[in-house]
């Protein structure tokens, strides 16, 4: 498959030509090989990911149920009409949004702070990097279990510390109607902070150092330097990781399942928990699939608003 161009002595042009897909003969040959290389991954993707997703969307328009003998029927948009009046679901949807934003925003701010610190060449950097592994590598179930131990009303370290400091006798954080959601949000922030920090840190290390120094020489303070030099370079990564965090957090399940299982009184029932119960406790596959569709639509709209707002905000700055 060696072509004449490749055989000639290497020059910059030739090297570039070697990568360009414009040449005819090798391209066809590669394409055949390409299909052969791609197929082993493409088949499972189509059969077990893309296919099921479409199937799932179709299910939302049926009355599919678990363990039923009569055939499943098309019922049009009936599931969606029912969903419209399902106040419990909308309450859960609202909690999902509060949770997603409540986790993503502090996560971003804390991660940015840590990334800026780690970028300063302080002494204990290695320790912070090592510790940041813990939340990232742990099974979500263990993160949940761990924080249950921290929040435990009697044997938990949180209440014990509060008692020591003299801030009252502590409370049952995860079962209190008012405290449950904030308490699980703290866990969500803790669990997702490392990934965000690592992404932001990489972004920081790409910012031009000379610009920073030039700005310092010109007498720009730390905040000015951050706004005019660091932030513009960091923005693309910051936007990408925040958008991803929003999606991941909105769709999260295991953490809250272990911490509160949606309680008390549904105060922490994220949409995923709601849909899971609908599908696998009550067997309402069609209805749960409709919820899934609404969740996708909801998160897409939220993302669009966020990204359009951010991008426009960037043009003004």
């Amino acid at each position: 498959m060696t072509s004449v161009t490749e055989a000639s002595p290497p020059s910059p042009q030739v090297r570039r030509a070697g990568r360009r897909p414009g040449r005819d003969r090798p391209r066809k040959a590669v394409d055949h090989g390409a299909w052969f290389l791609v197929l082993p991954a493409l088949l499972p993707i189509l059969v077990l990911s893309a296919g099921p997703l479409l199937y799932g969307i179709l299910l939302a328009f049926t009355d599919a149920q678990s363990g039923r003998t009569e055939p499943t029927r098309w019922i049009g948009a009936l599931n969606f009409r029912d969903l419209l009046h399902d106040t419990l679901f909308w309450e859960s949807f609202r909690i999902g949004l509060v949770w997603a934003v409540g986790v993503t925003v502090p996560q971003f701010l804390l991660a940015l702070g840590l990334a800026l610190l780690l970028n300063q060449g302080l002494r204990l950097r290695w320790l912070a990097r090592a510790l940041a592994i813990i939340p990232w590598a742990m099974p979500e179930v263990v993160v949940g279990i761990m924080w249950r131990l921290v929040y435990n009303p009697d044997a938990g370290i949180l209440n014990e510390t509060l008692r020591d400091v003299g801030l009252g006798s502590g409370r049952d954080w995860l079962s209190g109607l008012a405290t449950a959601l904030p308490a699980v949000i703290v866990v969500g922030v803790w669990a997702g902070m490392p990934q965000t920090t690592v992404a932001l840190l990489a972004g920081l290390q790409n910012t031009p150092r000379e610009l920073h120094e030039a700005a310092a020489v010109d007498g720009a303070g730390a905040w000015r330097r951050f706004r005019t030099v660091t932030w513009p370079a960091l923005r693309p990564i910051a936007l990408a990781i925040t958008a991803l965090n929003l999606i991941w957090n909105f769709n999260s399940f295991a953490l809250v399942y272990v911490l509160t299982n949606g309680g008390p009184g549904g105060r922490t029932r994220l949409p995923m928990l709601f849909a899971y119960e609908e599908a696998f406790r009550y067997g309402q596959f069609g209805y749960a699939a409709a919820m899934g569709c609404v969740m996708v639509a909801g998160i897409s709209i939220a993302l669009a608003v966020f990204l359009v707002g951010r991008l426009r905000g960037g043009d003004d700055a």
């Binding site: 077990l48 990911s49 296919g51 099921p52 997703l53 199937y55 799932g56 969307i57 299910l59 599919a64 991803l244 999606i247 991941w248 909105f250 769709n251 399940f253 949409p271 995923m272 849909a275 899971y276 599908a279 596959f285 749960a288 699939a289 919820m291 899934g292 569709c293 969740m295 996708v296 998160i299 897409s300 993302l303």
Partner: peptide, 17 residues
């Protein structure tokens, strides 16, 4: 796109399959 889809929408059809 695969990141954006909630797992319920994937797991119900997969469960049936």
């Amino acid at each position: 796109v695969s990141q954006a889809f909630p797992f319920v929408l994937l797991i119900i059809p997969l469960f049936l399959v």
